[in-house]
Amino acid sequence: MEPVTLTLMIGVGLAGAIAFIAGIIEDAESDAGSSSNPNSQVQLAPQIGHIITYYDKAIAGEPPQNGLWAAAACTIALLLSWRFADLGMGQYYAIFFAAVAGAAVTALVQGCLGIFAHISRITSMAAFKQPLYWHALLTPLPYSMGLCFLTALLLTLLSFVASGILGNSFAPPLIALFMGITLGSIASGTGDIHYGAERLYQHLPFGSGIAISNQGDIDLKGEYGFRNSVDTPYFCMRFGGTITALAFGLLIFLDGWSRLFTFAGPWTSIILEAAIIAVLFIFLNRLEKYTRDSYGPYPGQEDA
């Protein structure tokens, strides 16, 4: 085996592994701050008389906020690694140290924005007698900042791997922006369903969907006592977060994997990706058949 291919293979595996972990952490970060689409339910709760103790972070849609964490951390890391290299540090050491520093700065920015968003949103709920609970903000805040730190760090490393080992022609900060926004939309499309449709509505029967009339009637109790946002990720990470991670990890891994072969010249990766898409589409269809067969029609809807 040629050494170039071996390096590429290690790079693909590394990128896939980093992407997988980043997916888990990112989904946990969004759940800890109840951001993205399920946030509308947390926002509705005080209007129907539920006083909440959730951390209402809602910095933006999940994609742009992740884009900012990744792009900011990666930009700082890249610039700082040049400064370290000027001081005589080796390139790879420089990148590792700089990535940590970049992610730390990003976590501070996230903390500031999260505090602003939570306090302002709670203030806007004054008409529904929703007080500002400090414990609802201060308990999840360091947790959420820590998760943001990890997300930013992992996405920074991922973009350096993609640009350095896999040979993507974009500069690392731009790859970080792309990866951040892509991961944000994947996480808000997959992991958030587990948070929004299951964790917030555990008191409704499993499998009922959340009818529009029930929206806003979220759970207020945790496993013990009043529910705080730190109670959420431990539930969602087990299933929603892992599945999110699988989606993002598969994307990065399969995209890199399809570029390892050269049997049809530059067209190889396109042919392989088309085949992968077809296979995954068949999986989707079989999964649909499986759920329909095993769950059966909804009671009372058979002849509707």
Binding site: S208, G209, I212, R292, Y298, D303, A304
Partner: peptide, 8 residues
């Protein structure tokens, strides 16, 4: 239709 839960 039969598989749709009511209210969604």
């Amino acid at each position: 239709k039969p598989f749709m839960s009511p209210g969604t």
